[in-house]
Amino acid sequence: MSHSVCLFAYHDPAGTLAPHTRHLLNQIADCGFEIHVAVSSLSPQDHQGLENLKRSFTSGPTPVKAKLYPRENAGLDFGSWQELLKQHCDEGADEILFANDSVFGPMAPLSPIVTRMRAEQHPIWGMVRSEAINRHLQSWFLVMSRQAFEHPAIQRVFRQPFCEMSKPEIVLHGELGLGLAMQAAEMDMAASWSGTRGIARLLAINPMHTDWRAVLRSGKAPFIKTELLRDNPSGIPSVHLWRQEIPDPAFFNPDWIAQYLANHPPRAQYKKAGFRARLVQAIASEDRLHALPALLLGR
């Protein structure tokens, strides 16, 4: 019998489980994954905080069945996954999902997507493939078979000292490093959603920002990045219209996003992108027939 585990990186200084993350975890569980959560917003010595968070996971009409592992806040998602691997959370699993709490969604049932990708029997697959810098699978939802995970090229990536790295270094050596490792191992970079425009590689755009409406409307990756709606660092037009893009408010409650945004104001380190940068993003977008007019008309 196959055994699937999800290694989930979670950080919320409030010490509670946000409703949109509860929804994501339950959707992952519905796909047959045993869930292990690295909680980097809690000190391992904060026993009361851990008990409160456990109650948050198990309370309400949709409790989440998961094992929680508090850890120091270092290394971002790759550091969290390293901790869970150190705790042998992947033991006996022949399918490992690496995921984190950096997205809103899924906004349509996750199970049909996972079932379809499992049927294609890829050694590694992701929800979204990106051409930025080098071709890679975005790490916020990434599935590996046991054989693929144990490949020496993949193992070298996960053995790096992520907890000593800055965020740009983690992206470079982690997410982008996995893309290079997959190329070295001659593994196909299968994804539920991938773009069609070669210009995306040339301009190193993030499809979850530039192509957010196209990705969401495709039904192949029904997610929106939290960073896009909170910070919109690339100045993507029409992001403020996110509510009307949610396909089924009965399945994914838009108030979950509104609640998150009310409690998490934009981060100060992001400067508003200039018009030229926003124009480039619009031209590169899969959804450019909408993005260009929206930019030019200031919508």
Rank of each mutant, 00 (worst) to 15 (best):
M208V: 02
H209M: 14
T210S: 12
T210D: 12
T210H: 07
T210Q: 11
D211F: 02
W212S: 03
A214G: 09
A214I: 08
R217T: 07
S218F: 07
S218K: 08
G219C: 06
K220D: 11
A221N: 05
A221T: 05
F223N: 00
F223K: 00
I224A: 02
K225T: 04
K225D: 01
T226F: 01
E227M: 15
L229A: 03
L229D: 03
R230D: 05
D231H: 09
D231V: 02
N232L: 06
N232K: 01
N232D: 12
P233V: 03
S234G: 09
I236W: 00
I236P: 03
P237G: 04
W242N: 06
R243F: 05
R243A: 13
Q244C: 09
E245M: 14
P247L: 13
P247Y: 12
P247M: 12
D248G: 04
D248K: 09
A250W: 11
A250P: 08
A250F: 11
F251I: 10
F251T: 07
N253V: 03
N253M: 02
P254C: 01
W256L: 07
W256V: 01
W256S: 05
A258M: 11
A258N: 11
A258I: 04
Q259G: 04
Q259F: 06
Y260T: 01
Y260M: 05
L261Y: 06
L261N: 04
A262Y: 10
A262M: 13
H264Y: 10
H264L: 01
P265A: 10
P265N: 10
P265L: 06
P266F: 07
R267E: 15
R267M: 12
R267D: 06
R267Y: 08
A268S: 15
A268L: 15
A268D: 14
Q269T: 14
Q269L: 12
Y270R: 02
Y270V: 00
Y270A: 00
Y270W: 08
K271F: 07
K272T: 15
G274E: 04
G274Y: 05
G274T: 00
F275H: 09
R278N: 08
L279R: 03
V280H: 11
V280I: 15
Q281C: 13
A282Y: 00
I283G: 09
I283T: 11
A284N: 11
S285E: 06
S285P: 08
E286W: 08
D287C: 11
D287E: 14
R288T: 09
R288M: 13
L289S: 13
H290G: 06
A291T: 11
A291V: 07
L292D: 06
P293D: 05
P293Q: 02
L295V: 10
